[in-house]
Design a protein around this nucleic acid. Structure first.
Lengths: 202, 202
DNA sequence: GCACTTACGAAACATCGGTAGCGAAATACA
DNA sequence: TGTATTTCGCTACCGATGTTTCGTAAGTGC
């Protein structure tokens, strides 16, 4: 793993100071207000030192939000509707938190804000894209297992593809945040899960 | 509408030449390969002239893809499953087209490509965001009317919220393109519509 | 004709993300 | 005690997206 490095070791305090400054700037002023130049200055670090750790502004921003995400565990109560709702509410809350980053308090304008920039960052840099897909795959694996168990105990249709169900649920939330700008509050999330489970057909 | 303008009129031929050059560059080299500087040069136009029409590269890119989208009419055969599938297949096809823009042929890497940048553009500029939401609202209004009619003739549950159903369907497609990188081919689309209609519950 | 207004082109400038080159500092290893 | 290796800070620089300024062209209204 960590090979015994030769040469001067990295100052881990620098990582901390830079990430702290970057976090503050990203949350207060949004993605456009995150300036690597100013982050380096505020952290008391040379710009080159910053760029050795995070080769682009996108990488820096990813590192910031990655630190902010506490990995949400998923609970299996045996009631699939309850469990799925719980998972979706967590996703929705995380989205709403990022959605409001960088805009004046009370700004109810529909805006994807930081979320959209992170998605674009994944599209611009292969490594970020891969990383993001891995993170989502790992997080979704838990939900997929949950769905599969519910299916096997007869709560869900035998022919159901768990991936499709998860796409429907998580997809709807991201779609509203990124595309239509509609809110993703708790009431909506509950209606969403109920509709997906019960189906639209009469 | 068009007030009788005073002063020198704009050369409409310039719009055409610029958009043509920008379209070629965007489709061949992707979003990063779209350079306003080079577009102006290739179109034989001063940079200032280009920026008078499209104040940022984002606006230029939006104008390009807006021209490429033919407004897809929606058909109502009376079979909601068939009609929804048709609509979703059109969306999926448009997404796959943009997804492959700017990357070497045969590149099967999962990448949101241009789509993600357009979403980010909507997040960066209020006017683009509003425009995008209007476009989606208008397009979705047709699908919502379709769903409502199906509900009223008894094909769908009376309590169904058409918006939720549409979020589930379109959301799943965008989610796969933007987030997980999974393909959105016809087989998936059909499974998606079937699952949303039939529901996940046993 | 003349004033007024707007569009076009050219070139210089500004800003920002990111890089290159260098000397100095801090470690591992011999 | 060297010597190799890597990090750090500094300055200067590059490329790309926009902006400013200004002279000139092409229209409208009188």
């Amino acid at each position: 793993m960590t090979e015994s490095r030769r040469g001067r070791p990295r100052d881990t305090d620098i990582d901390e100071r830079v990430l702290r400054a970057a976090t503050a700037m990203l949350l207060e002023h949004g993605y456009a207000g995150l300036s690597p130049n100013e982050v380096a200055e505020r952290a008391g670090v040379a710009k080159t030192t910053l760029y050795r750790r995070w080769p682009t502004k996108d990488h820096l921003a990813i590192a910031v939000v990655a630190r902010l995400q506490e990995d949400d565990e998923i609970t299996d109560t045996g009631d699939i509707r309850r469990d799925l709702t719980g998972y979706m509410v967590k996703i929705a809350a995380a989205l709403e938190r990022m959605r409001s980053a960088g805009r004046p308090a009370g700004d109810h304008d529909a805006s994807a804000g930081v979320v959209a920039e992170l998605v674009a960052a994944g599209a611009r840099h292969d490594d970020i894209g891969r990383l993001g897909r891995e993170v989502f795959a790992r997080r979704n694996a838990l939900a997929l297992a949950l769905i599969t168990r519910a299916r096997e105990r007869g709560e869900l249709r035998p022919g159901l593809d768990p991936v499709v169900l998860l796409d429907q649920l998580a997809g709807a939330l991201y779609y509203r945040v990124l595309i239509t700008g509609a809110p993703v509050d708790r009431a909506y999330t509950e209606r969403l899960v109920a509709t997906a489970l019960d189906g639209a057909r009469n």
